[in-house]
Simulated assay, not measured.
Amino acid sequence: MRTDGSQQFPSACRAAVVTEVDPDDPGRVGLAVHNPTGQFFHPLQAGGSVHSDAETRLGGTWHWPERV
């Protein structure tokens, strides 16, 4: 978890639905995130979008689930 106050919750992988894709940057999406405490929406507009980060998987980013 980051301690600089920039994240409200600790970083954790959560289920999400891609709700929209930025036509100019396909790695930037809008998400509906499902958490144990509720759902959170990150639309493309209003700066709530989320960027892809399959390598480092930093908090506040998204990646496709691992295949088993």
Results as ranks from 00 to 15, higher is better:
V33Y: 05
G60D: 00
P23N: 00
A32F: 10
E20H: 08
Q39A: 13
R2G: 08
G47M: 00
V68I: 14
D22Y: 00
W62Q: 01
V17F: 08
H51G: 09
D22G: 02
P23H: 03
T3C: 11
Q45D: 15
D24G: 07
P43A: 04
A46V: 08
Q45P: 07
P36Y: 06
E66Q: 13
E66G: 12
G60H: 05
H63V: 00
D22L: 01
E55S: 12
G5R: 03
Q45L: 12
F9N: 12
F9V: 09
D25K: 07
Q7F: 15
P26V: 01
G48S: 01
F41I: 12
A12C: 11
T56A: 15
F40G: 10
H42R: 07
A54F: 09
D4S: 03
P10M: 06
A46G: 07
V21F: 06
V50I: 07
R67W: 14
F9M: 09
A32S: 12
L58Y: 09
W62T: 01
V21N: 05
F40Q: 13
V33L: 06
P10R: 08
E20V: 03
L31P: 03
Q39I: 13
L58M: 12
V29S: 05
P36M: 05
P36R: 04
E66I: 07
T3G: 14
G38Q: 03
P43M: 01
A16V: 04
D24I: 04
V18M: 02
V50H: 04
H63G: 01
A16I: 03
D24W: 11
L31S: 01
P23K: 00
C13M: 13
P26R: 02
S6F: 09
L31G: 03
P23Q: 00
G5Q: 02
V50Y: 05
P43K: 03
G48Q: 04
A16D: 05
V68T: 15
R2Q: 11
D25Q: 06
V33F: 03
P23T: 01
P65Y: 05
D53I: 03
Q45H: 13
P36Q: 04
P10Q: 07
H51P: 06
D24P: 00
F9A: 10
V18N: 04
A15W: 14
L31R: 02
G59T: 02
